[in-house]
Design a protein around this nucleic acid. Structure first.
Lengths: 144, 144
DNA sequence: GTAATCTTTAGAGTTAACTCTAAGTCAAGA
DNA sequence: TCTTGACTTAGAGTTAACTCTAAAGATTAC
């Protein structure tokens, strides 16, 4: 299938502006153009956009994503670099997920605390609750 | 315990510049000052910084974090707003974690693919591997 | 064929979150 | 006391990633 920039924008949730910006930054080197200059996206390009979303989602900068794309274009000589990059990103992602679990515990505690506080009309009083105090201990000291 | 800005910087990994910036933005309204103008951080302030880290980590802007801190300062009238905020952040965090799991599956596939590609010296050939093709199907179509 | 819509470019503008500078003040050790 | 290093402020500068504008050309629907 072929897609115009507007169709891709709809499909991906990005704006046409952003797609052009990505292309200018070298992130979409495979997008074709018609004789009159209109961009034509293929399913392969959509696939690249999904990969870009993934790499952005794990915290890579557009600059580093471009590096990966450049390596891809250089061919099999850069296979080790690309492998190493993905290994680093996995490690990074593992740390991120661990962090998010800690944040989740903290936020769950807050939800329990504030649910009780709303019920009692007082944060002070909710804080007296022994179960909440125990949860706070588990999650880690706070007051806020 | 009392801490200077430099000690807090060391403790938290933030720079003194960033701590002053946070204070200027209204995120640290409880930090004291000595007669001569030096900031004095307490353990409570460290606790706020940990909360700020958590909220930043789940994707909140400093502006929205400040809103929460302002609500806190307004007292028990704003308990419902704060509860709702934490509930929204939990929902957001759940989506985030789901996304990260998908990204992890994608990156794991890449690691398997590139490990094989490095072994064979060819991405093309690695792509022939039936097990990898099956994993790709599970994770979702790509080529990149 | 023509009006409405879409797309093009170059380049300017925006936003969030820092990050740094300069010029001066404060504190602790020899 | 002197020096060294940490701290102060106001304000300027930076960076990444968009986001928008203007003026023109291309495409689609009727």
């Amino acid at each position: 299938m072929r897609y115009s920039i507007g169709q891709v924008a709809k499909k991906t949730g990005l704006t046409a502006h952003t797609l052009r910006y990505y292309e200018k930054e070298g992130l979409l080197p495979f997008v074709q153009k018609t004789g009159s200059g209109l961009r034509v996206f293929s399913d392969t390009d959509i696939g690249w956009l999904e990969m870009i979303e993934c790499l952005k989602g794990v915290g890579m900068s557009l600059k580093d994503i471009k590096q990966y794309i450049d390596w891809f274009r250089e061919g099999d000589e850069t296979l080790p670099q690309r492998l190493e990059m993905f290994q680093q990103q996995r490690a990074h992602l593992e740390n991120q997920m661990e962090q998010l679990n800690k944040y989740m515990a903290k936020i769950n505690y807050k939800i329990h605390l504030y649910t009780e506080a709303v019920r009692l009309g007082s944060l002070e009083k909710a804080h007296q609750n022994k179960e909440l105090q125990a949860e706070q201990q588990r999650v880690y000291g706070d007051m806020f």
